[in-house]
């Protein structure tokens, strides 16, 4: 337990960088859900495609352009390609269903179909061997620049090690949030998207093309997911299966924050990241009747235990609240 307490600050730092990724994915959920009312379970698959494209481009470009430029080119290509994949998914799979007045459930199932197709695509094109890229800012570069507190690819600050890549993750989250804020408040397209989110009927009456806005929302979400995918490419194995777990966690984060609430989604993501990291750091426990349990590998389940708890608590509060509607009519 003492060891656990000593590592707690480290775990929290780890949790925040993990959580920032979840927050990025969650933002994608929120954008799509707000505009088109689709729960898009393929969000993680967008991330996977983004990461795989990124790795492929970086690999190819590094030889000709050098590492720094390769990362930039990789990011750009990954975002554009994945944004296109997002738009294409909407146009081919969701739009025809929405035009036929598909139910919410039907749309969820379609999004599962899309994620099955994308995952299989990822496997067929890139195979089953995990790949990876070097950190955007390798520790070696920092050491050569004269920084002494660098071990491997991590900075030592006090007792806490901070991966250089984590700094990029936080940076990406801040840039994305700022970018989205400007986009939604300062541009015509952004305002039109917000109008659709707030009141689709009056938005349509005012001449906002809902279908086009949904297309943009899908492309935008996929682009955000691609950014997240590219930025964690140096931190974990990149292969076709990576989207499922990350996507579901992003989704849990979005639900924690209230599904249509972008600020909530960011907090949800960070909170989930921290909880997961801290639980993962708990020492092995001997539970009576259950035998030895290693919390590190319970991580997978944690997100969903939280999810169920959040859903049920919210529902109970809603149902027992005074004067509320008991049935959705």
């Amino acid at each position: 337990m003492d060891i656990f307490l000593a590592t707690l600050p480290q775990l929290i730092v780890l949790g925040i960088s993990l959580g920032a990724i979840y927050a990025l994915i969650a933002l994608g959920f929120v954008v799509i859900y707000s505009v088109s009312n689709v729960i898009n379970l393929a969000q993680g698959e967008f991330l996977m495609i983004g990461a795989l494209v990124f790795v492929a481009v970086v690999d190819a470009a590094t030889k000709t352009t050098g590492a720094g430029l390769a990362v930039l080119v990789g990011l750009l290509v990954a975002i554009i390609v994945t944004g296109g994949v997002g738009a294409l998914s909407y146009a081919l799979a969701f739009r025809p269903a929405i035009e036929r007045r598909a139910s919410v459930q039907t749309l969820i199932i379609i999004s599962m179909g899309v994620s099955i197709v994308l995952r299989a695509f990822g496997n067929l094109v890139w195979g089953v061997d995990p790949t990876s890229t070097p950190a955007f800012l390798p520790g070696r570069t920092l050491r050569e620049a004269g920084m002494t507190n660098v071990i491997g690819d991590s900075l030592r600050l006090g007792g806490v090690a901070l991966q250089t890549q984590s700094i990029w993750i936080i940076f990406a989250l801040i840039v994305t949030v700022t970018g989205l804020f400007v986009f939604f408040n300062r541009t015509m397209t952004g305002r039109a998207l917000r109008a659709c989110a707030m009141n689709p009927d009056s938005a349509r009456l005012m001449g906002v093309p809902l279908s086009k806005m949904s297309l943009i929302a899908f492309a935008l979400s996929a682009a955000i997911a691609a950014l997240a995918g590219a930025i964690i490419a140096p931190m974990q194995p990149v292969l076709y299966t990576m989207g499922l777990g990350l996507g579901l966690r992003g989704f849990v984060s979005a639900i924690m924050g209230g599904i249509a609430n972008p600020v909530g989604a960011i907090w949800g993501g960070l909170l989930l990241g921290i909880i997961e990291a801290v639980v993962g750091g708990l020492p092995q426990m001997d539970l009576p009747g259950l035998g030895k349990v290693n919390p590190a590998s319970l991580r997978e389940a944690i997100a969903f235990v939280i999810l169920l708890a959040v859903l049920i608590i919210r529902r109970l509060r809603g149902a027992n609240g005074l004067g509320g509607k008991r049935f959705g009519l």
Binding site: A102, I109, I110, G113, I116, V117, F121, L124
Partner: peptide
């Protein structure tokens, strides 16, 4: 490949015969 066809069929069925 099987999964990919599954996914595609699932989407098509959901669009045209929900």
């Amino acid at each position: 490949f099987e999964l990919m066809i599954f996914g595609a069929i699932l989407i098509l069925v959901m669009i045209f015969m929900p």
